[in-house]
Write a protein that binds this DNA or RNA. Structure first.
Lengths: 245, 245
DNA sequence: GTGCTACGGTGGTCTAGACCACTGCGAAAG
DNA sequence: CTTTCGCAGTGGTCTAGACCACCGTAGCAC
């Protein structure tokens, strides 16, 4: 199953992006610890500047797919579990874990923003927001209970979109041209109460992750504030940490 | 309290590193949303290439301190809570949160590596390891229960070091010249049993974070495998997520 | 007024080099 | 045989540009 690295880059797409994809696939087909071609070798092979190669290797390193040692080389890292610090939708996340994502919409309504939501979205208290309440499932089983809040003014008609088994991110992107850029996510641990436990099909008193995420688009504006409870017995996150000088 | 940006860079240290520190302090003194000088302006001011400025801005962006919008500029981000994806020791972490770190060493011993530890550290099963069991405190209160495993062959005499209120990272760095580079951290949620709850001074059945971390040095070798239980009622992590193209 | 366009300023991508810091290893010196 | 040193190859930092994509706005045409 040893992949081969293609020899050429096509036009019309950033060279680094293509190179990164090639390397990602190639690296995945190698045993951990294997040394990759040197930066200079890759640069020459693809007719690209070394800085371009390096930028892409940095991206892969921060994703935990490779590691670099000065004086020695660049190597394939141990296979990751699942990636945080990559901003993904629930659907993308579950597919990456090899499961089939689904949703059960509990409610979709327009409401007034209270203090926390207003602050996170950069709105005024009382401004209209769309609140979407869903149970997110993986392979048909409840995985998370999620409440998303979005500015109603920016997404008129969102409350009547069909979210049954659709990805909210895909809808926002195709209907409103939103491109997601970055998010701040806070993670805490909670013990589930009766209602929450019932929704997630687990027993009362079990532990769960509480994720609070505010997502920003490429223009810097806040697009959504989401509060999600993830089953602690089914979910785990992995983070790649790096040491700064 | 508006900081001023210094005008010059000293020799003998990477320019980018200094520039990054300047910008970090400067940004911290500004209101969120304030626009920073453009990349070209910074490059000219410090007599440095624009690529050097960009590299440093990328680092600050991934730390969640700034955000950039194409066509508009670079802006100061909302203040962060606390930073993950920055590889820090417990001591550094607590100091960054404004608390005083401490330790209570429960045991320090040389033992044989069992399967999991051996795999994580790249050793053989039965190889000698140093196991350090500590209660980590913040402002005198128990915050985490931690078990660290390190290869004994690499750190002879480590088991008799005084770890009472010292940072393990600082000892490894000063005595053995270890420079930490990167780590993979897995986070799960657990419910505390009797023994664990007692050690953390909380009641049985409460939720906690379980961190499993394998730390690598700059030469790529695994240096420690740590298993830590953090009180869920006192601890929270924040992560900066970015969207890849 | 309303709409369109051109333009200057921003970050995003990329080039073709340079020198430095570190590693591993083989050759020379002891 | 052991030690030392130099060298080739690696990643790390940095330069001085180039062009592209995108945003806001001022000015023009209607």
């Amino acid at each position: 199953m040893t992949n081969e690295l293609p020899d050429e880059l096509s036009f019309k797409r950033p060279k680094g992006e293509q190179l990164g994809e090639y390397l990602e696939e190639f690296g995945a087909s190698l045993r951990p610890g294997t040394m990759l071609p040197s930066e200079r070798a890759l640069a020459e092979r693809y007719g690209v500047a070394r800085m371009t190669v390096r930028q892409e290797l940095e991206r892969l390193e921060s994703k935990g797919l490779i590691y670099r040692v000065q004086g020695k080389g660049t190597f394939v890292a141990e296979p990751k579990f699942t990636q945080t610090q990559e901003l993904t939708s629930f659907s993308e996340d579950m597919r990456a874990r090899g499961m089939v994502p689904g949703s059960e919409v509990l409610s979709t309504e327009v409401a007034e923003a209270h203090e926390i939501v207003a602050r996170e979205l950069g709105l005024g208290v009382g401004d209209a927001i769309v609140r979407i309440e869903r149970i997110r499932t993986a392979d048909g089983e409840p995985m998370a209970y999620e409440r998303a809040h979005l500015p109603a003014a920016r997404f008129p008609g969102l409350e009547s979109e069909s979210l049954a088994n659709a990805s909210l991110y895909e809808i926002l992107q195709s209907k409103w041209g939103v491109r997601f850029a970055q998010a701040l996510q806070r993670v805490s641990v909670v013990t589930l109460n009766d209602e929450e436990a019932a929704r997630l099909h687990v027993s009362v008193g079990r532990s769960a992750f509480l994720f609070e995420r505010t997502t920003h688009a490429t223009d810097g504006t806040a697009v959504e504030y989401v509060r999600s409870l993830y089953r602690g017995d089914r979910y785990q996150v992995a983070t790649q940490l790096t040491r700064s000088p």
